[in-house]
Amino acid sequence: MITVRSSEARGRGNHGWLKSRHSFSFADYYDPKHMGFSALRVINEDQVAPGAGFGTHGHKDMEIISYVLDGVIAHKDSEGNVQQLPAGEFQLMSAGSGIRHSEYNASQSNGLQFLQIWIQPDKIGGKPGYQQKNFGRRNGLTLVISPNGEAGSLTLRQDASLYQLLLDSEQTLTQALRPGRRQYVHLIKGALTIGNTPLKAGDGASIEGLAQLALQAGKAPVEALLFDLP
């Protein structure tokens, strides 16, 4: 079964310096029908004004992924990590027993657009951690986050994996799925058909009970994220 979460139906937040779209309930946006999917709790598409950002604040017991679509994030945290996260790179911050961080648009003249993703860990507590990597732009599915750091991926504290999906115009791809697992696709760019279900940019799709995914790009190249979840 494939259930589409349309881009237009997402929650909205507008704070002047920050404009955000929420795939699931977050902050002032609450929808009991959209509280997350499996261990996936948050997908926010954030647009941050030049020089603005999130001041120092705390997190606990959450795996927080940032993927920059345009611009650069300036990151600083209580574990001593001071990093720049440019477009195309993935960041994974394991909050563990508690971490404080700030993230700002590193540019004073250009906007910042990124995806903020939260996944609930399978164990609480533990030492906070920080990982960051650019996985390039290889066509097809690229494993970027996994429970065990397989194939050079970042290591997540949950039985879940994240893939970067890149397809050329009108390219097709078939991916076998493990029994008993659930998947979620968030489409960033292009038009993508999953089986007979069409998606446009900003749409999400929760997937349950399928043995394989049949993916086909439309007339423009596709960029998406594919989550494999318990």
Rank of each mutant, 00 (worst) to 15 (best):
S97I: 07
T3K: 15
S66P: 07
A9H: 05
I99L: 13
S20D: 01
L18G: 01
E63V: 04
Q84P: 07
W17F: 07
D77Y: 07
A39Q: 15
Q47V: 15
L92M: 11
S7G: 13
A39I: 15
N44I: 07
L18H: 01
S25D: 02
V72N: 10
K60F: 09
A49F: 14
R21S: 13
E89S: 12
Y30M: 07
K19C: 13
T3H: 15
G16Q: 06
G51Q: 01
I2A: 08
S97R: 14
R5A: 10
G53Q: 09
R41D: 06
H59Q: 05
Q47T: 15
D61N: 13
F54N: 00
D70V: 04
Y67M: 04
F24W: 05
P32V: 12
K76C: 07
F54S: 00
M93Y: 12
K19V: 15
I43L: 08
L85S: 02
A74N: 02
S38P: 01
G55L: 10
M35E: 10
A9W: 03
H75F: 05
L18A: 00
K76H: 10
E89F: 05
Y29G: 14
F54P: 00
W17S: 04
I99D: 11
S20N: 04
P50N: 00
W17D: 06
L40M: 06
S23N: 01
R12S: 12
I43G: 02
G55S: 12
K33G: 14
R5W: 13
H34K: 13
R12A: 14
V72G: 03
Q84K: 14
L85E: 00
P86V: 11
G55A: 14
F90G: 05
T56L: 03
G36N: 10
